[in-house]
Design a protein around this nucleic acid. Structure first.
Lengths: 205, 205
DNA sequence: CCACAAAAATGACGTGCCGTCAATTTCATA
DNA sequence: TATGAAATTGACGGCACGTCATTTTTGTGG
């Protein structure tokens, strides 16, 4: 009886490698939440595991790289959510609202874990990691499709994608500050802004 | 014949203090632009001045604090621009467009100085400094006034202010990537999005 | 002009983190 | 079990930080 249904026999070698990497990420997430990105040291992170300091550098080149991996992790978990929203949507408006809801819910969940210090000391948001870029590309693709299908007027998809992301990024924290955070209201606000807003946007080309 | 028309006699004491502080800020701006925020060290900064390492700490407590001072500096220079736009505006739409134009122009100018590396290696944007918060407050106040005067439907001013800022922050870099950067188009895009977008936004309360 | 006190500048120093690396342990394979 | 590859270990050199006793500069009163 194999341990997993996977066809990979996976030796102990590989298993500890992914386990170690995961352990570092878990510890890093906690340390960043507790101390903030700036104050956290690689030693703080490695102390939260059973590993020796040198081992850290077998997995990541720097604190920065761990942080990017965490951010990428978030983006990577978010992308399938975005895709499902896209596939299930009955209309473009439906998709847009679902996407915002999914994002805000995601943000709320991310910030709910790891004890109380919900916001403040939140590490800087980086938007230039590979996975983040992929999210941007996906959003942009959706918008271009919508334009091609006539669901949207023919506006600048690049600007629009950035506007969507900007709105999401700023509205997320603003929503979290409310008590209780109201995901649906924030999403409706954003959706309305985008959908109706396009009517006033200048045409591209 | 006094050196300045100021009524302050200002001794040499105070004069070197502001000069030193300024020298540190100037050096810091250059060093951050050259090395990036992370890689830059306090010593790199102080080396760009005629001062000794210990002197740095008479003026700032850390690299972080210098960076905040620089960011604050930017925000502080931007606020009067915003106010002028507000006072000269003939309508709310006019104000909004002027504000976006002013912001994008500001971003373009900021990134044009200090040699070539226009973007990339740009230090993290912090939005939690006092002056940044003041900008947010000012934007929000303008929006609330517009709502009170009936220029805008009665929507959530907090969300709207954040949406404006989010759009500005994301569209700025996106605009810079274009060649040539087109401030007016980007501003028109943002303005249209906000103005028309409000019609679809949910009412607050 | 000088003496003296307050303020500021200096740079050497203790501390702690970083990233490396030779030595060691663990694992896969025959 | 023997053997080599792969991964782990922790000590070490180097560097940046922030402090502080000392020195220099500035303002003031005699």
């Amino acid at each position: 009886m194999s341990e997993t249904a996977s066809i990979e026999p996976i030796g102990k070698r590989e298993k500890t490698k992914v386990a170690n990497r995961q352990a570092i990420l878990v510890a890093a997430r906690r340390v960043f939440a507790e101390l903030g990105y700036e104050a956290a040291t690689v030693r703080d992170i490695i102390r939260g595991t059973e590993l020796a300091s040198g081992t850290f550098y077998n997995y990541f080149r720097s604190k920065e790289e761990v942080y990017e991996a965490l951010a990428d992790d978030g983006a990577r978990r978010f992308r399938p959510i975005l895709r499902v929203a896209r596939e299930h949507a009955k209309s473009f408006e439906d998709y847009l609202r679902s996407a915002f809801v999914a994002y805000f819910r995601f943000v709320a969940e991310e910030n709910a874990e790891e004890g109380r210090p919900v916001d403040e000391r939140r590490p800087h948001v980086r938007t230039d990691t590979p996975e983040m870029m992929a999210v941007y590309q996906e959003v942009r693709q959706s918008l271009e499709d919508a334009i091609a299908h006539g669901d949207l007027p023919h506006v600048d998809a690049d600007y629009l994608a950035h506007a969507c992301i900007g709105i999401a990024q700023e509205l997320g924290p603003a929503m979290l500050r409310r008590s209780p955070p109201d995901i649906d209201t924030a999403a409706a606000f954003a959706t309305g802004l985008i959908l109706k807003g396009l009517e006033g946007a200048p045409r591209k080309d």
